[in-house]
Amino acid sequence: MMTNKNKWKMIRSIAVPLIGGTIAGVLATRSAKAKYQHLERPKFAPPSWVFPVAWTSLYTTMGIAKYQFDQKSQKGSLQTYGDITYSTQLGLNYLWSFLFFRWNLRGTALVDAMLLWTSVNLNTYYFYRKSKLAGTLMLPYAAWVSYAVALNYATW
């Protein structure tokens, strides 16, 4: 049974990526839908409505993964590396929207996306080493970022 303390930890773990992603999205992509419609997109590009649905799901899942990772009581380098890669991938994730939509820096956004891909995969590895559930919960995010890199490249 989950204690009240653990419920709040889980809520916080989910809220951090959801709120951060929402703030970054609102600030960076105010006219993203219109810009996206005018971009020369590859045939495999999804309709614009897919992005908020996908990101809401992914941010929620990554928050649950972070909670699961933090629940395993193990201090040391694995915890540190997991925390660093988690924070890094969140920062790169938030930055991408500004680079791609707000500042129209498609090439720089692609570099960011490749760094994001690397940090997400490292983060998934560290999470999995400590908690198989946490690592597994990160797999849809890793897959989506792989797709996003291809989409960013094709758009650039």
Rank of each mutant, 00 (worst) to 15 (best):
L39D: 11
T124Y: 02
W103G: 05
D112W: 02
S119K: 00
Y128G: 00
Y147D: 10
V145H: 00
V111R: 02
V53C: 13
S87R: 10
V120Q: 00
G63I: 15
N104T: 09
A154N: 08
R102M: 09
I14W: 11
F101P: 02
A24E: 10
V120I: 12
W55V: 11
A15H: 08
I11E: 11
I19C: 11
L18E: 05
R106I: 14
T108F: 06
Y59S: 04
F69G: 04
K7A: 13
L122T: 08
I84T: 05
I64F: 08
W96V: 04
A28G: 15
N104Q: 14
K75W: 11
N123E: 05
T124K: 11
A45W: 10
A143R: 07
T60Q: 08
A154L: 04
L133R: 08
F44N: 01
W8S: 12
G20R: 05
A109F: 00
P42F: 14
Y59K: 06
A148D: 04
L95F: 04
T29V: 12
G63C: 14
T56R: 00
K5Q: 13
M138F: 06
W117Q: 10
Q79W: 06
F51N: 01
L95P: 05
P140F: 09
N152W: 01
P17I: 08
P42M: 01
L105N: 01
Y81T: 00
L95W: 02
R30G: 11
M138T: 02
L116I: 12
G20Y: 02
A143D: 09
L151F: 02
P47D: 14
P46D: 03
A65S: 14
W96K: 03
S31C: 06
N4H: 15
R129V: 03
Y59H: 09
F51K: 04
V50W: 03
W8G: 10
L90A: 04
V53D: 03
H38R: 14
L78T: 15
V16A: 10
I19K: 08
S131Q: 01
R12T: 03
K132P: 07
G76D: 03
Q74I: 07
F51E: 08
N93I: 03
G76A: 05
L151P: 13
V16Y: 05
A54N: 11
A148I: 09
V50I: 15
P47M: 02
M2G: 07
L110G: 09
G25Q: 01
A65G: 04
Y59D: 09
Y81L: 13
R106C: 01
L92H: 00
T29H: 10
G82Y: 03
T85V: 07
A150P: 02
T124V: 12
S77Y: 12
D83C: 05
Q37M: 13
K35Y: 11
Y153A: 13
D83L: 09
Y153M: 09
R41K: 14
N121K: 04
T60K: 01
D112I: 09
I11Y: 09
L78K: 06
